[in-house]
Amino acid sequence: MLTILFDGVAYGMLLFILASGLAVTLGLMNFVNLAHGSFAMAGGYVTVVLMQRYGMGFLATLPVAFLVPALIGAVLERTLYRPLYDKSHLDQVLFSIGLVFMSVAAVDYFMGSQQQLVHVPSWLQGRFDVAGVGIGRYRSFVIVVCIVIAALLQFVLARTRFGSQLRAAVDDQRVARGLGIEVGTLFTLTFAIGSGLAGLGGALGAEMLGLDPTFPLKFMIYFLIVVTVGGRAGLIGPFLAALLIGVADVAGKYYLPQAGAFIIYAVMILVLLVRPQGLFAAAR
């Protein structure tokens, strides 16, 4: 019972790191980016390639798994995403679905369609007991990393100059620009960091979630749920929503395996019906 709760928390933490970039682009910048999972997949595959072909250690690959998707994100933001910021949600959806399809097919072409295995170092394998509760080492590692990142993100967004500039730019772009804030650079940087975090999440999650070319499609709805259910006002809502979904999903799969993902989807529809602005956000 407690083990399930623990696994659920680990899963939820991972979901939050994966979706945190989307919480900013969709939640704050109001851009529906369904291709967010593609950046996560990119991070996962960077780790796989570095470990299998170049024999790097798992931990050493993680910074690269952050940097490469961040770079891809920055380039794509500058070239393709930017003109779409003021288009309709429908256009943004179609565009990003297109990107998802392309990334799925491209990864399939270059890496093959099989599941990729990531071997975590031996000191992260296995589990230990705390008061009779089995706790996976890797999962506790993930939780610690994710808590650190989440705290950092919240600190950056709420306390630093960068964060307040970003919030200003999101609230009212014209005024922010008038005050001398470089909105374009700011958004590129934000998008890159979000993509990089997704990549890091993809690398961390490859062992727990699995990694194959359909990853962006499989988890797209989860990221969207985290952001829309959590509310689009900041990072705390998505964080709580991610934990909730993580625990609910793991528990659901354990106790009611035949229901599949049914419960999650039904809950999402209900929440969006009752509170279209999300669970943890005030109505706008």
Binding site: F95, L99, M102, V104, A106, Y109
Partner: peptide
Amino acid sequence: QFWVGLLLVVFV
């Protein structure tokens, strides 16, 4: 699917 995706991106 790659070409469908490309078509979507180009169109939008």
